[in-house]
């Protein structure tokens, strides 16, 4: 008896919490409002199903609870009903899956206009590399890593010499320009995650992963690592500054290129200690 009431209350409380509580996603700052929309569709469909099933259950418990002389029906199967329910469920699922796959296609299709930015993760800090004048990043490999070359840029690849190296966890991006984030790690798994951008992707040592997005408003956004990477995981933070184009160009000017890097930064100021094996 009481349980019927409580079941109904669980539905009411859940819906009320969803609608009234202040906890909701942070305002978006990228082009991925498609993802938000798919999420909203999913909330609606699943919310209706949840309420329907639990309220139906509450009704059954209330209406068919044991009382003196009550006898249950005997009806083993009902083909028609079962087929109907199956078809309706399949349609509901398709209504969520199809928009989902459609948006996934966009998510994994990087536009030609996107500029490439490399993010390098290591325990427990972020570094970045941006293409120089030639607009291309040089190749890289852990085997080239040493004190003067903390990101392992290939010194024999001419496209790499003008690459801009940023250590210390602050990346500038121009607003309203699509960027492809190429992700690398030099030690363990990490994950580049900015809640406002909605996108994230693991960084895996030994391979280059990617995602793309377009920042749609200026501001400072905190980068969190979203893949367990050891004791410092929760403290592995950085910032992305989304700025207007002019400010971005200015900032880029001040950064060191790969060629300059080796000479400019005294060893004791470099953030990582690197073995002098190479």
């Amino acid at each position: 008896m009481m349980i019927a009431l409580v079941l109904a209350l669980v539905v009411i409380a859940s819906v009320a919490f969803h609608l009234l509580s202040p906890w909701w996603w942070t305002p978006i700052a990228s082009n991925w409002d498609y993802i938000d929309n798919t999420l909203i569709i999913t909330f609606w469909i699943t919310g209706v199903v949840f309420a329907a099933v639990v309220l139906f259950m509450a009704y059954c418990v209330f209406r068919f609870r044991h009382q003196e002389g009550r006898k249950a029906d005997f009806n083993p199967e009902n083909k028609r009903l079962e087929i109907w329910l199956t078809v309706a469920t399949a349609l509901g699922v398709a209504a969520m899956l199809l928009p989902g796959l459609f948006v996934w296609k966009q998510f994994v299709t990087v536009p030609d206009t996107a500029t490439e930015v490399e993010v390098v993760g290591q325990q427990w800090s972020w570094s970045f590399r941006l293409p120089g004048q030639d607009g291309r990043l040089g190749t890289s490999d852990p085997q080239w890593m040493n004190l003067d070359n903390p990101l392992g840029v290939n010194p024999h690849d001419p496209t790499g010499t003008d690459d801009v190296i940023v250590e210390g966890g602050e990346l500038y991006l121009p607003v309203n320009r699509p960027v492809k984030m190429s992700l690398r790690s030099i030690d363990v798994l990490h994950n580049f995650y900015v809640p406002e951008f909605r996108a994230k992707m693991d960084m895996v040592p030994g391979m280059v992963t990617f995602f793309w997005f377009e920042p749609t408003r200026t501001g400072e956004f905190e980068v969190l690592c979203a893949e367990l990477c050891g004791t410092g995981h929760g403290f592995m933070r950085g910032y992305v500054q989304v700025v207007e184009q002019e400010e971005y160009d200015e900032w880029l000017q001040e950064q060191l290129t790969f060629a300059e890097y080796a000479n400019a930064v005294p060893v004791e100021d470099q953030p990582t200690r690197l073995a002098e094996r190479y």
Binding site: W32, I35, L39, T42, L101, W104, K200, A226
Partner: peptide
């Protein structure tokens, strides 16, 4: 159904 639907999982995964 949120987490299985690949693109919806992107913002939610690892949270």
């Amino acid at each position: 159904l949120f987490l299985g639907n690949v693109v919806v999982d992107v913002p939610l995964s690892d949270t």
